[in-house]
Nucleic acid binder design. Structure first.
Lengths: 225, 225
DNA sequence: GCTAAATTCAAACGCCCGTTTAAGTCAATG
DNA sequence: CATTGACTTAAACGGGCGTTTGAATTTAGC
């Protein structure tokens, strides 16, 4: 009488069509990108997905578990893309250290690229930005603990910036993430501020802008203490 | 039988003690900094404030109106501090253009400083970060439209960076706000990432770090197109 | 010290929430 | 072709929500 109620990790299980789960995840991603977790009701969500109200509890177990499943799906996809670009940059450097600019590109390009092409990961990033302040404690802790893939970037940056103490590399990587977040959270303010001059319309231009800014910040002279 | 129910703009009105309104605002600021608007109930809020459940509706008219009043109180305070620092920097430049670094300091110092001293504005910043994804549409639009005080910084930066096109100044100012936001929203991730190495403990060190990073980003060479 | 307004209070209102239930549908299996 | 198990469905559940009410209480003016 129940499928993925306890743990939502089965991918094909027995043979029931996989459709409904994906439909729910897609609708949830879209809505959670527009409003916060608490502000989206299951009635609204299931109606948008075109499924029955009980479907979420049947397939995921609870609203909380749906959020966690959603986070998992997106994180895997995004981190895989980032890791691939970083690996390619390292191979290009022939075992040496890639330039800061290329490490930065590997960090920011996937998220920006997805924002322009698929709606999928664009929404994921916005959703993550919101989820930090809302939702079940378990999901928020997962977001904070899931830093393993960032460690690879911290390591690579530390090698490329050997004059910086380790903790400064962490701080600047943290700021770099903040710059990325500003692409998903406050674009309306930027559009208003610039009188419509600045918009998310040209992928390459936006990417170049972000990479320039973040690279310059990472390479800034170290003056603290 | 009613006081500020329709519009919550009266400051002293007739003579009822001002205490309750302030107590509610303080409690709300604290809670909205921890959780999102939707996730905080009036029962929880009024209990934390030590007032009756109906007090919010009596003094502010509704939960939505409380959020807007709260935003107003904090925005005025923060913008006033920023404007004062910018004015002082401009006076120091003797009618000329202050260096980028000093403009940046005027932009970021108030928020950082308040984060360390009073609890008041520290919470306000966190609350604003959350409010963008939640709460009544009216409040969110207000946050996006309230960019007047940022225009002053955009203008000052454009003068200090005459080689940049106007829209690029807007973009980089936008990124600077993103870096600031990262101080309120994702600190837990930074602490985990750095193994506890990075923390919000030393005001001057944090401020210097942010100013260095943002200044370098603003002064980065312009390569787009 | 009385009056009238301002504020507080406990109780209730109706609504929508996440979740559960139990009957119903449908495809695959033996 | 009956049976089984996965899935869908409509309906209901208890509970917490924002808000309203009307009486009790406090405060200020004459």
């Amino acid at each position: 009488m129940k499928a993925g109620a306890d743990i939502a990790t089965d991918m094909e299980s027995t043979g029931g069509r996989q459709d409904t789960k994906e439909v729910i995840l897609d609708a949830a991603e879209k809505l959670f990108a527009e409003k916060t977790y608490s502000a989206v009701s299951l009635r609204e969500l299931t109606q948008a997905a075109g499924v029955n109200l009980a479907a979420v509890n049947y397939h995921f177990g609870s609203k909380d578990a749906l959020l966690i499943a959603l986070f998992r799906r997106g994180a895997i996809e995004l981190n895989r893309a980032r890791a691939r670009l970083l690996r390619e940059a390292e191979e290009r450097a022939g075992g040496g250290t890639p330039p800061v600019r290329e490490i930065v590109a590997a960090l920011v390009l996937p998220a920006i690229r997805y924002s322009f092409t698929s709606t999928r990961l664009a929404l994921y990033n916005q959703f993550v930005a919101f989820a930090r302040g809302d939702g079940p404690a378990e999901a928020r802790e997962m977001l904070d603990k899931e830093v393993g893939h960032l460690q690879r970037f911290a390591l690579s940056l530390a090698r490329a910036l050997p004059h910086l103490p380790q903790h400064e590399v962490y701080w600047r990587l943290h700021f770099a993430m903040g710059v990325q977040h500003s692409l998903y959270t406050d674009m309306k303010r930027l559009e208003t501020l610039s009188g419509g001059l600045c918009q998310l319309d040209d992928l390459d231009a936006v990417a170049a802008r972000v990479i320039d800014y973040v690279t310059a910040g990472l390479e800034a002279p170290y003056t603290v203490t």
